[in-house]
Write a protein that binds this DNA or RNA. Structure first.
Length: 782
DNA sequence: CAGTGAGCGAGCTTCCGCTTGACTT
């Protein structure tokens, strides 16, 4: 039996550390937090100075029991949780649960899992820092108060049903998306005309090549035309050439957030996918810990990286760098994300190779030499005009880190529009005459900020100091699951733009078309998200403020330094907050996001759009009217905010009779489960590519025929006028009664076609009596 | 299943941060 028990958070770390420390230590993991606030009644005694009530959650009981047993048998317990606020709290909770004295129990920390780091940590133990623990408790309690006070307000005040929630992080994330959407919708593009001249000159081999020079931008088409006119008959010559050496430096090694961004840009992964794959790589020992905000690399890692660069590319490619973290909220408990062994190139894990390559390359590049470029800027004179044109070229003199890796660009990066296509210029000399092939003034429109992707939202949250590496992906899952936000593509719209062209001393104008506004896998707020956000901003502007987290983080820091009492801090927050809560419960009206669209001409009844119990809808008339109001669901792409009166009225055109087929009427409508076609007492649901408002008889009939045929092929037998059916499924035959499916016992599957009604009834009864095991039910309160 | 949307008012839901499995179809 080992004399010492050392506890870390992650089981994968435990294994590695046990190898390093040898026989004197048994290393175990506690799998993160082992205690949390009780779920009922807040878990906090506000009146007793915010005294928290902690419990060990059911799913943690097993780990805790095991740790208790081993702790009892060990001479000494060492706490080696992460060196950050949460890690310190975990150590303290371990003391509480394992019956250890926090004032004497050995607490050690390290930021990297390397032999020297761990050995020196063990040589210099300290004790649990209660100030830091208190800062964590304040953080935890504040989040609980905010979440568990705000969410019930939504349940009371929202007309929409479902499990709604609000919180310090998620609600602000939704707000970012909501505000971006509104700024896009109200954006008015402004056009300008950019002049480009195309010249030809001879390259080094004497071959004629074309190159581009840029002129000014004009806000009006007329001004652009005047400039082109002024150039008719002009001669062009090189007035000046400047050659400037420039440098490009590699980006810092990956943190969680930058890894998510790069995997999104280069591989198209959502943040959850990235994290699942990274977790697999970590568990297999291929990469360091993947939930980190640090850009630091251990000395051991640096040695591996530089020697790998040396062997692969040579000494001149090595350039050792220390990166500094840009954001203040970083807690830097771990290293940057890097390969554990730079010599490993192939990882034998499904789908994870590409992500590993990305990490490997980024890590390599971070310690490689700057790329050296030579930028040439040539000014071109126009004989008839005072203005000059500018041609730019770039030549790579030394590739440096670009040999392995170049960081991707977001579509909201400035200059990304222009500076990506800088090619080479042919050799030019001052005074050289140039032949103009053509000059164009192309109309360009200003663009709104792009919608967020999962990864660009994470970037923004990190900039604001909101959320942590371990919560970025789950936060996005939450706001998607709650229906506040949707991830989808948007088709672009065609837009005309003008091109004025000067060629052979003649000016012509042509109109061309471009596709604009197309976006892929972007986050859109739903009506629910917009309505809930507006409500929260109206009544809880302090918590919803983008600077709120940063402000309370400063106070948590004060607590951690022992300069502020944690319950005083909470009290200062709580008093005005609780007042807002009371006030809102009393005064706020039910939230429905109602918007008046107009009046129905025949009846004079009001037409409105609002949130209903089942989602966004339009309504004609009022509940208090004698006649019942009429309702219609909004289409997926429509929103309460932007729907027009005409679009709303269009929605009332369902149900619609399309015509007849086999002497029976064909009707299209929208039901609870979406749009469907009704014919001859049967229902055929419409797939997404069919818009129920567009469907006509000619499209409906093939759908009926095809679905009917597919159904026939799957049907084995029908009982009681189709109330009970025997169907063929992908895993074998099954029984369908009403909406419910019932499995057929294995031994009866082969002869399913011979089953009679009595036997079928018996199977159904048996299944109902002994329902198949479902996923473990959620724990209810005792 | 192919309907609704208010309100009546049980009984349900919820936060953020640490960590990984154990569950189905």
């Amino acid at each position: 039996m080992a004399k010492n028990l050392l506890i870390v958070e992650s089981p994968a770390k435990a294994k590695t550390i046990e190898k390093i420390l040898g026989q004197d230590f048994e290393v175990k993991s506690c799998f993160g937090h082992i205690r949390d606030l009780e779920k009922d009644e807040m878990g906090i005694d506000v009146k007793k100075g915010f005294k928290p009530r902690y419990i060990v959650p059911d799913e943690k009981k097993k780990v805790v029991t095991e740790l208790k047993q081993i702790a009892k048998k060990s001479d000494e317990v060492w706490l080696a949780t992460d060196e950050d606020r949460e890690g310190e709290a975990i150590s303290w909770h371990l003391c509480e649960v394992l019956g250890l004295d926090p004032e004497s129990t050995k607490r050690i920390v390290f930021h990297e899992i390397t032999k020297p780091a761990i050995k020196s940590a063990v040589a210099a133990p300290r004790t649990v820092d209660m100030n830091l623990v208190n800062a964590q408790q304040a953080r935890r309690i504040l989040d609980r108060i905010v979440g568990f006070e705000l969410s019930p307000i939504l349940w009371r005040k929202m007309s929409m049903r479902g499990n709604l929630s609000a919180g310090r992080v998620q609600s602000v994330a939704v707000r970012l998306i909501a505000e971006r959407e509104r700024s896009i919708n109200s954006f008015v593009p402004v056009s300008s005309f950019k002049v480009d001249a195309f010249f030809s000159a001879k390259d080094i081999n004497g071959k004629a090549v074309q190159f581009k020079a840029e002129g000014s931008k004009y806000n009006q088409a007329d001004d652009a035309r005047k400039f082109l006119e002024s150039c008719t008959g002009a001669k062009y010559s090189v007035a000046d050439i400047q050659v400037k050496p420039t440098k490009k430096s590699p980006a810092a090694p990956f943190t969680t957030s930058t890894l998510q961004q790069e995997a999104s840009r280069k591989l198209g992964y959502g943040v959850s996918r990235t994290m699942i794959l990274a977790q697999k790589l970590y568990e297999a020992g291929h990469i360091s810990y993947m939930r980190t905000d640090s850009v630091n690399l251990s000395d051991t890692a640096m040695d591996g990286i530089t020697s790998q660069i040396n062997t692969s590319y040579g000494k001149e490619y090595v350039q050792v760098r220390k990166f500094k973290n840009k954001n203040e909220s970083a807690q830097e408990a771990h290293e940057a994300i890097r390969p554990t062994n730079m010599e490993t190139i192939k990882v034998d894990i499904a789908d994870a190779q590409k992500l590993y390559d990305l990490i490997w390359k980024r890590t390599m590049a971070s310690q490689m030499a700057d790329a050296e470029l030579e930028k040439t800027i040539a000014k071109i004179e126009i004989s008839t005009n005072k203005e000059q044109l500018t041609a730019q070229g770039e030549v790579l003199k030394f590739d440096g880190f670009l040999k392995v890796y170049m960081e991707g660009k977001d579509d909201d990066d400035e200059n990304s529009e222009e500076d990506d296509a800088e090619g080479m210029l042919p050799p030019l000399s001052v005074g050289q005459q140039l032949n103009l092939r053509e000059m164009k003034a192309t109309e360009r429109f200003s663009r709104p900020s792009p919608r967020y992707t999962e990864a660009s939202l994470v970037k923004k949250l990190e900039e604001l100091g909101i959320g942590r590496p371990s919560t970025y992906a789950p936060t996005i899952s939450t706001i998607l699951k709650r229906g506040y936000v949707e991830k989808r593509d948007k088709e672009g719209v065609k837009r005309d733009y003008r091109v004025l062209m000067l060629k052979d001393d003649k000016i012509t104008t042509v109109t061309e078309q471009e596709n604009t506004g197309a976006e892929k896998a972007k986050l859109f707020p739903t009506d629910l998200g917009l309505v809930v956000t507006d409500f929260l901003v109206q009544y809880f502007d302090d918590v919803m403020d983008y600077g709120f987290t940063a402000r309370i983080e400063n106070e948590f820091d004060e607590i951690a330094l022992g300069k502020m009492k944690w319950n005083n801090m909470l009290n200062d927050f709580y008093i005005p907050f609780k007042e807002d809560v009371q006030n809102t419960l009393e005064k706020a009206e039910r939230i429905s996001g109602e918007k008046e669209l107009g009046f129905e001409p025949e009846s004079g009844k009001k037409v409105i759009a609002r949130m209903g119990r089942y989602g966004p809808m339009v309504q004609i008339g009022d509940v208090n009217d004698e006649e019942k109001p009429r309702f219609a669901k909004l289409k997926n792409t429509q929103s309460i905010e932007t729907i027009t009166y005409d679009e709303a009225m269009e929605l009332f055109k369902l149900p619609r009779v399309l015509g007849e087929f086999e002497e029976k009427p064909v009707q299209v409508n929208i039901g609870r489960f979406g749009p469907y076609i009704a014919h001859d007492g049967k229902f055929y649901s419409l797939s997404k590519e069919h818009d129920p408002y567009e469907v006509d008889l000619d499209t409906a009939i093939p759908i009926i025929i095809e679905k009917r045929k597919a159904k026939e092929e799957r049907t084995i037998k029908v009982f009681e006028k189709e109330k009970i059916q025997l169907l063929r499924g992908p895993y074998g035959p099954y029984i369908k009664k009403g909406l419910r499916n019932f499995p057929i016992p294995k031994e009866k599957q082969e002869s399913a076609a011979n089953l009679e009604i009595a036997e079928v009834q018996k199977i159904i009864e048996e299944v109902i009596a002994n329902p198949p095991k479902k996923r473990a039910p959620k724990k209810k309160k005792a």
